[in-house]
Design a protein around this nucleic acid. Structure first.
Lengths: 228, 228
DNA sequence: TAGATTGTTAATCGATTAACAATC
DNA sequence: TAGATTGTTAATCGATTAACAATC
């Protein structure tokens, strides 16, 4: 039986469902209908049901969805029931910020080590792990020994594609890429880009667009759904 | 005459065009066709032409596009021809990483000050600007005096909505939100979310999906377009 | 049972791709 | 002019929304 490919549009919404369900669970709600959730999240109930039904029937007619169960199931879909071992490549400001962010750990994402070209950092610690030289053999061995599956790339864009290529050859299957460049990797390697300046440019566009629009029609809307 | 609203799908692609055009310009290329650009960026030539034509005719039949001109025009569309004054709210690890990142400055985004609740940080500097107490009156005056239009929110999600509300009342029109929560703001305030853990969860999903798929059909594709 | 709400099919909407006439 | 390539319309594809039968 052919499994249908789930669109990235759906996947992109799962973490937000997961977050809302986690909060509902925390506040003791143990049952919710697509309609209630739709009001809370400002999306259509139709979309919620369609999204969930990509993965099978999580609800019950006449009842709705069990919050705890749904939360767990979406967690499983997102692969949060398995731990992930990560290495940080580039222990600069941003890299250190990420490695010190505890919330990733709570979701099963663990930094096992960091690598940097700067000798001043070698042997020091960041986020509870050692910083090693960006040495090919060392990285290769570390990735194999520690069963690293994700590399977090926080290095200048000039160096990113070359390092990414090496990491892939050492067995890395997922790259969380903060370098402002597209990484050409084989199709069986997953890249998730976080292009901060792109994000800032989108904000800049929307600021200008809105400013000129209000200047034009002079009205100020109270509708804030679009921002969610 | 009604101006058609440009879809966020198009806007989301502009920064990437901008990046490629900047690189072409730097390497001395001054003319490119939609077909050449499509091969470079791994998107369809049709999409490129459609995207550009949302904003008017930037090209010339039989010739293609002038790289420098197109680069400038897209910059203008993105609002990069105007400077933006920003404040950092929350000078923790992530906030300090952002305020120290020089590339935003090159694009016209300037941090003018930082605010934090931690007294140990007050009076210190980060990224060349002072860190102030998160005091209502001080923030209000600073935003007005320094003509701040963007606030960069790097605070825990529990505090983010309350602070965001205040900032908006002080005149902030754009929020770059790194807190893991949806901010309810009026429609004339633009929010750009950077939800890092959501991004990591997507990577986790795609890792698992691919791992089980290759396990199933045992093939390893060389096509890497999808990762761009 | 009657009421509620899902799962799912059908209708609509929007975005992407293809095609080609206009034109440089 | 002939060739190339855009701007733009038309066709296709995919995603969202609406509707409702199934069922708890």
């Amino acid at each position: 039986m052919e499994e249908k490919e789930i669109s990235q549009a759906v996947i992109g919404r799962l973490p937000r469902y997961y977050r809302y369900l986690g909060e509902l669970k925390m506040s003791g709600v143990d049952r919710i209908s697509s309609r209630e959730l739709s009001k809370l999240m400002h999306v259509t109930a139709s979309q919620i049901r369609q999204d969930f039904n990509n993965f099978g029937g999580f609800g019950q007619q006449g009842y709705g969805y069990n919050v705890g169960f749904l939360y767990e199931e979406i967690g499983k879909i997102l692969g949060l029931d398995n731990d992930h071992n990560m290495i940080l490549i580039g222990a600069g400001h941003l890299g250190q910020a990420l490695i010190n962010y505890m919330n990733f750990r709570n979701r099963g994402f663990f930094f096992r080590g960091a690598f940097d070209v700067n000798p001043d950092l070698w042997g020091k610690e960041a986020g509870g792990v050692k910083i090693y030289p960006c040495d090919d053999e060392k990285m290769k061995k570390f990735i194999a020994d520690e069963k690293i599956d994700i590399a977090v790339l926080c290095i200048p864009k000039t160096q990113a594609p070359a390092i990414a290529g090496k990491l892939v050859s050492y067995g890395i299957r997922g790259i969380w890429n903060f370098a402002h460049v597209d990484l050409p990797v084989p199709d069986d390697v997953q890249v998730e880009n976080v292009h901060l300046s792109d994000s800032l440019m989108k904000l800049s566009y929307n600021l200008r667009r809105h400013t000129s629009e209000t200047a034009k029609n002079g009205k100020k809307s109270e509708d804030w759904d679009r921002n969610l």
